[in-house]
Design a protein around this nucleic acid. Structure first.
Lengths: 335, 335
DNA sequence: CTGAAAGCGCTAACAA
DNA sequence: TTGTTAGCGCTTTCAG
């Protein structure tokens, strides 16, 4: 049944005018007779005419597409980020093309290539955890399209970025614990070479220092592995035992809580636990998790807005631009 | 710095051949001199030429885009579905345009319109829960592009669909409880007018019937509202109290478990609980939730494959095509 | 084997 | 105010 898509040419013929007239009528051009315009508009309406975006894009040499690369769509963090980014893009008439690197640097490179080939007008990238070599991104600098990094910035690359203030989040959480009277606060950190982990660790350390506490204990773990449980077991058994533990993220906190329960200690009383991120699971744990919330949705919005600004030729002087979004503590039952 | 994108014309000029020759060389056309071909290919390589997809699409009147409409990207279920669908699409050289209806029928309609305007070649739709009026979808039937429904089918619409076998999942779960010796099994169902909820309820009922149990209790609730807790409280206090409860989904199960704990009963012993979906939270509850897993990722793949098949002109006789994917019980601690 | 030319649907500079 | 024409980048007859 595939009825042929109707074009401005069809309209022109039926009305005995030229295609340019139709084009003008449709695009609200000033120099056109009111009567002709009406005729065109009403026929277009009647025929259910929809301009062919492929033609328009070719004509303008613009794809109106923004590429987004994230590690994993099924992680709540990223789907939230994308929801924010997409809202802004749509608002400005852009589509987003979402690609997943599945945390592989190699795939990441491929995707950049593919997206460039498909002529995206801008790129929003959440670098894979695995990625450390900034060198690979130098080629991006040579593309004419704007790039914005999200959630993780790449040092010395001079590319815009939006991240959350991990340092401040960890600092505030630690401070909260201290104010609650905890003297011995441990930190289950993330991998040592991940910048986000480093910042959180530093926030923790500086808070400890600020209040002159003598106890300080940091254990690096790779979350979602057994390392966390091993580390936590070690903490529970250490003497004196910490009164609180600040976790790299909510998953780490979950494992920590399991161990605490295993030793029949009470979470939120014998040992306070604070997570990071406010994943949905934070509300579904028992006890419900006190955690540092990152404004992920907003981060997506801000990043996309920044990208569009660069796209529309903001003054060079303001590029690259870095923004750090504040986090805040959500108080629940674990601390 | 925006260096102009290089085109086949550039290559043609530098090599003193015509654009058509370049085109042929690039597209591996048979009728071309080997030598010329080599020259073109190597120059293209050297110049880092990438064909402009906008031009190709216009030429072919094909967008190579598939539209996907889902209620909410941040729900794990849907992000998983999309991951499956996207994998297949990419594999076949298609992009996906992901849109969220945010569970609004109105937005849903708008999105269909927008996607049609943007010339997607096919549509994958997960209907919003709110949507009941199939009439609205009739217009889709008049589009020349193939449509596949996912997760929920619309009756009497003659459009292809892929869903999971809710009936069988609920039946198997109930049967499992019966085999474990439960005589009194209650069902916390979803909203009465949602097809998925109806099927699950029916699976429950039929299992009860098959084994000739005399106890049968169904309470309809709207999940993520207080209704669930109210209903569960009622069940816990009823005499005789049910020995097990089959929940409409994992969120319902979570609330049910909270209530059970509230009465100091032991989940998995005093009352067994089974959820539905296997959301990530299922593993993070205490106790870990026994639940009916739906093959969501696979559903996305199957649906996209079906869509592409229709797109590539499978025999009309095989369209529409309906598939029902089997679910399976994941045993954990709650039952 | 290669080139010229038309055309995909639309816009815009230039004429009338 | 309207029409003519060229062109966006590429493919594809149709000639040579």
């Amino acid at each position: 049944m595939a009825k042929k898509e109707i074009t401005i040419k069809d309209i022109a013929q039926q009305l005995n005018v030229s295609v340019s007239t139709v084009s003008r009528a449709l695009s609200n051009h000033p120099r056109i007779g009111l009567y002709t315009k009406e005729r065109v508009l009403s026929l277009a309406q009647k025929l259910n005419f929809r301009p062919n975006p492929m033609a328009i894009n070719l004509k303008n040499s613009k794809s109106r597409n923004i590429g987004i690369i994230i590690p994993e769509l099924t992680k709540h963090f990223y789907s939230q980020l994308i929801t924010g980014a997409e809202a802004i893009a749509t608002e400005h008439g852009y589509n987003v093309i979402i690609c997943q690197s599945h945390e592989s640097t190699h795939k990441e490179e491929k995707l950049i290539e593919v997206l460039l080939n498909s002529r995206v007008e801008g790129l929003l990238i959440c670098i894979a955890n695995e990625t450390v070599d900034t060198g690979r991104f130098l080629k991006i600098k040579n593309t004419p399209i704007p790039v914005v990094f999200c959630d993780r910035e790449m040092a010395n690359l001079n590319i815009s970025s939006v991240i959350t203030n991990d340092y401040q989040g960890a600092f505030a959480a630690t401070e909260y614990l201290i104010n609650k009277g905890c003297k011995r606060i441990a930190h289950l950190a993330g991998s040592e070479n991940i910048p986000n982990s480093q910042s959180r660790k530093q926030g923790y350390v500086d808070a400890i220092l600020k209040y002159g506490l003598s106890y300080q204990k940091i254990i690096y773990t790779h979350y979602l592995t057994h390392q966390v449980q091993v580390a936590m077991r070690q903490l529970v058994l250490s003497k004196p035992r910490p009164e609180a533990v600040l976790c790299y993220n909510d998953y780490v906190a979950f494992d920590a809580i399991e161990i605490i329960k295993e030793y029949e200690l009470e979470v939120g009383k014998d040992i306070l636990v604070i997570g990071f991120a406010d994943e949905p699971i934070a509300q579904y744990m028992t006890p419900k998790l006190t955690t540092v919330k990152q404004p992920v949705w907003e981060m997506g919005k801000v990043a996309m807005q920044m990208l569009l600004d660069e796209l529309k030729g903001k003054k060079e002087s303001e590029v690259p631009c870095s923004r750090k979004l504040e986090t805040y503590l959500i108080l629940r039952d674990s601390a």
